[in-house]
Design a protein around this nucleic acid. Structure first.
Lengths: 167, 167
DNA sequence: ATAAACTTTCAATAGTTATTGAAAGTTTAA
DNA sequence: TTAAACTTTCAATAACTATTGAAAGTTTAT
């Protein structure tokens, strides 16, 4: 496998993986491309490399900026805008975890809390609804907490030692 | 909020959340319905409650069984098949985590490993590709490991004490 | 103030994924 | 063995999501 093959494989795999971390294909591919690029890329560069339209590129870059994963780079003397992504995987993971928590997990936790707080009318089905949604609420909250705590560690040593501890 | 409202809210929220854990809406809704039901439900019951077709119900129940989340229940004297889901949230989380790891994360780890193992030809861009995909490989592997280890704990105490430890 | 260089927007359309429903298949009871 | 009760399959289609491309908008240099 040479450079070009490896690059294509990485970009397309990361792209189709997008769904796993909740973003679309083009968005994930743009991020992947920037992630392995040695220098900031322009919209033109991205369009050409991924063979996607200008509009698509523009919209997805915007979304990546909303997520806080990609930033505009102004290169002196250049008219075009250039883009870079966060290069540190730890920081990247932290940003993604925080955003997903905020956008998706928190709202669900709220619904679970509301549903599990309905008045117990004494019927079996109500008791079951309360019991099960409460269990789900606790689990979701704990998992969300753990992910955020782990991912927020500036250093990696604690994560590694925890991993050993629970092996 | 009364029982019926709470139930609907839970089922539809859990349904739209499906994407978060990688399954489709109908599948997630069926699972949610079974999760709060006090007794096994027939295909008929599910179709009526969720207002979805027979075919859809059949296919999604099958998928839930493939995931190992839902099981057929045979009720003596009854001709119909009945279904139940795993009621213990810990066990549910364990099953889902294992399946997602196997179906989605493992293949990505493999690609990252392959890509980061290409021959270093000394160019800057090759060095960057290797460096970045290696970092991503390590992160993904560590995260996958941690999730599996945490979620495999039969008891919950260790998870809770870990959470305290890293707060 | 003008126009070239560039970016954004958004209606149209392509592409993908989910859902239906009816025919085919299976199981059970008599 | 027959037929009723039930489940599965799958081609057709509906619903949803992503992408295009050209017009509108913005910025910069002169």
């Amino acid at each position: 496998m040479n450079y070009a093959e490896a690059k294509t494989k990485f970009v397309s795999t990361w792209g189709s993986l997008g769904s796993l971390w909740g973003i679309n294909k083009a968005m994930a591919q743009i991020q992947a491309l920037l992630f392995i690029s040695t220098k900031p890329l322009s919209m033109e560069d991205i369009m050409e490399d991924l063979k996607i339209s200008r509009g698509n590129t523009s919209m997805n870059l915007r979304q990546l900026m909303d997520w806080g994963i990609v930033t505009k780079e102004i290169i002196p003397g250049e008219r075009k805008e250039y883009f870079t992504t966060e290069k540190d995987v730890q920081e990247l993971a932290r940003t993604i975890a925080k955003e997903r928590s905020r956008r998706e997990i928190q709202p669900v936790i709220k619904v679970l809390k509301d549903v599990s707080s309905i008045k117990d009318d004494g019927t079996e089905k109500t008791k079951e609804l309360i019991k099960q949604t409460k269990a789900l609420h606790d689990l979701t909250e704990t998992a969300d907490d753990m992910i955020n705590k782990l991912v927020s560690q500036k250093q990696n040593w604690i994560t590694k030692s925890l991993l050993k501890l629970i092996k």
